[in-house]
């Protein structure tokens, strides 16, 4: 029963990944891919300032995206949890989760329109007198981070909401009865008990942001060079060793983040 799935995994996952790994040791010279063993590409990624900047920019973008998605997602999950009427809960959850079904290309395009120099956001800024000149919000890091946070929001709300719905209401009531104010109750009951959800949300948002390709390609305007774009460009230029090492760096960072979060998860649940 397991055989068809295992066969597919072998053919379309294990073998391609091994091929990918093999190409990371190839040589790329004068626009040609050569079957010569070398570690040059690895050395360049470790010591060359150009590649270091790309790796750091990728981490920075993923960090900002995760923080923004948390800042919006946590209160939304809280609101979803506190809403008392079932129909409101249903509608809010529908609104939060339905964008998953809309294509990432469509959503990124929406952000381009929204943030353009003559778009609605700049129109509001101008008519309200907050900015005299149009603020450049798109085709830079700001646009990429905003759009990515939008795309990942459902994945952030879901784990936080499910950790909230597992809290025993008696705990909060007891804290309130013992005279704790709202803030105190939140700080010593709700927040610590939802930390596992927050860690899970960070894990998902950060790894998704690391691997994001469509949104940085569309909203970065060539000014946001992150690893996935670098991997794409290198592949198009037949520089497969750089594509392979870049991809492996991405993968290693993702695995480290997942492992760290799993560690934190165990720690915060204990």
């Amino acid at each position: 029963m397991l055989a068809p799935s295992l066969a597919l995994m072998l053919y379309a996952f294990v073998l391609p990944m091994l091929t990918f790994f093999e190409y990371s040791f190839y040589t790329f010279r004068r626009g040609k891919l050569l079957d010569e063993f070398s570690l040059t590409t690895y050395r360049r990624f470790l010591f060359d300032a150009y590649y270091q900047t790309i790796v750091l920019d990728t981490l920075w973008m993923a960090t900002l995206t995760t923080l923004l998605a948390l800042a919006i997602g946590y209160p939304l999950a809280f609101a979803l949890w506190r809403l008392e009427r079932p129909w409101m809960k249903r509608w809010l959850s529908l609104i939060i989760f339905s964008p998953i079904i809309v294509s990432v290309v469509v959503r990124s395009y929406g952000w381009i329109v929204l943030l353009a120099d003559q778009g609605p956001v700049n129109w509001i800024l101008k008519t309200s007198g907050l900015a005299a000149e149009p603020v450049t919000l798109v085709f830079n890091l700001v646009g990429v981070v905003l759009s990515l946070a939008h795309v990942f929001l459902p994945f952030v709300v879901f784990p936080i909401y499910s950790s909230m719905s597992r809290i025993d209401p008696a705990l909060r009531e007891a804290a309130m009865d013992l005279g704790a104010g709202w803030l105190r109750t939140f700080r010593s009951i709700t927040l610590p008990l939802t930390l596992p959800g927050v860690v899970a949300a960070v894990q998902i948002a950060f790894t998704l942001a690391l691997g994001a390709f469509v949104t940085p390609a569309m909203l970065g305007g060539g000014r946001v060079l992150v690893l996935p774009l670098q991997v794409y460009n290198a592949t198009a230029e037949i520089n497969w060793p750089v594509a392979a090492v870049g991809g492996l760096v991405l993968l290693v960072i993702a695995i480290i983040v997942v492992a760290l979060c799993n560690r934190l998860l165990k720690y915060s649940e204990a």
């Binding site: 379309a12 391609p16 091929t19 691997g211 991997v231 993968l251």
Partner: peptide
């Protein structure tokens, strides 16, 4: 495969 960045998977499959 869920953890794998999609672009890595895409490029690996392309090479394979």
């Amino acid at each position: 495969p869920i953890v794998m960045p999609k672009i890595v998977l895409g490029v690996a499959l392309f090479m394979f």
